[in-house]
Amino acid sequence: MRNKGVNYAKYGYIFSIPFVLTFLIFSLYPTIFTAVIGFTDLRGMGRTEFNFLKQPFDNFVLILNNPTFRKSLGTTAIIWLMNFIPQILLSLLLTAWFTTRRFKIRGQGAFKVLLYMPNIITAATIAILFNSLFGYPKGPVNDLFMRFGWLDAPANFHMQKWTARGVVAFIQFWMWYGNSMIVLIAGVLGIDPTLFEAAEIDGATSTQIFFKITLPRLKTILLYVLITSMIGGLQMFDIPRLFLWGGPDSATLTASLFIYNQAFSGSYLYNRAAAASMIMFLIIVVLSAALFHLMRDKDEAKFRKAERLRIRNAKKQGELV
C-alpha cells in the first residue's frame, strides 16, 4: 500500500471535520458567548447589542450575593441528596438480591423492564402527572392514603415546603433508581466469577461476599453513578419547573430554574443568567474532570507514561554520552 504513495492518515482528519465543525459552532461558540455575556450589560427582550461592564465581575458578584440564587443552589443540593441516598441504597440492595446466586430470583428480566420504565418517559409529562396525582383536596394519592387510613384528612402536598420537595425528590428517585440498578448489575456481572466461587468454597456468607468482594470491586462504577447523577442533578429543571413552577415559596426552585427565570420569564436579564450559568458550568467542569480521570484508559495512560519515561531516560543518557 505504502509504495503506491496513498496517504490514508488524511482521511482521519477529513472524517472528523463534521464533528469538529459542529462542535465549534454549536457547542464551543455558545459556551464562550455565554461566558462573554456574563461580563456585559445584555438585558431586555429582543436586544442583541451589548457593552462590557466597567466593573467586569459585577454580574458575578451580584449573582453570588443574590439570596435567591444561593437558596436555589441549596435547594438543588437538598433535593438531589433526598433523591440520591435512597436511590443508591435501593439500587445496591436490588443489585445484591438479583446477583446473589443462592436466591436465583425468577423474572429478573421483567422486573428490570418495569423498574427501568419511568426513566424513558418524558419528565415534563411525569411532572404534570404527579401534580395531578398529588392533587388537593381530591387526588389519587390523597384518596389512596385515606382509604388505607394513613391520612385522616387530605394533605395539601403542593403548599408545604417539605412535602413539595419530597415529591420532587421522589419523582427523581423513582425515575432513576432502575437505571442505577441496571448499571450496577452490569458492574457485578463484570467481576471475575472465580472470585465468588472461591469465596463460596471458603464458606463466606452472601452478606460477607457482598461487602468484601462485590462492593470494593464496584467502586469505579459507583463513582461513575455518583458523578453522573450529580451532574444531572445540578441541572434539574423539567420536574421542578412543571411540578410547581419552583413553588411553594421557592421551596423547589432549583439553580437551573433560577437561571431560566432570570433570562426567559419576564425579566430578560441575560447577563445575570449567563453569569449564574458560568458558575454552574465551572462546578460541572470540576465534576467532569473527576469523571474523565475515572474513565481514561488506565493501561494506556500507564503505557504512555512508561514510554515518556523511557524516551526521557534515553535522552538523558544521550546527553551524558
Partner: peptide, 27 residues
C-alpha cells in the same frame, strides 16, 4: 492528532447544553 482528539472527546463528554443555553439562545 488521533489520540489528542480522543482525549478531547472524553473531556467534553459531560458538558451539557443547558448551562450554555443563554449563549446558544442569543446565537
Amino acid at each position: 492528532l488521533r489520540q489528542p482528539f480522543f482525549t478531547f472527546i472524553l473531556a467534553v463528554l459531560m458538558i451539557p447544553a443547558q448551562v450554555t443555553g443563554i449563549g446558544f439562545y442569543q446565537f
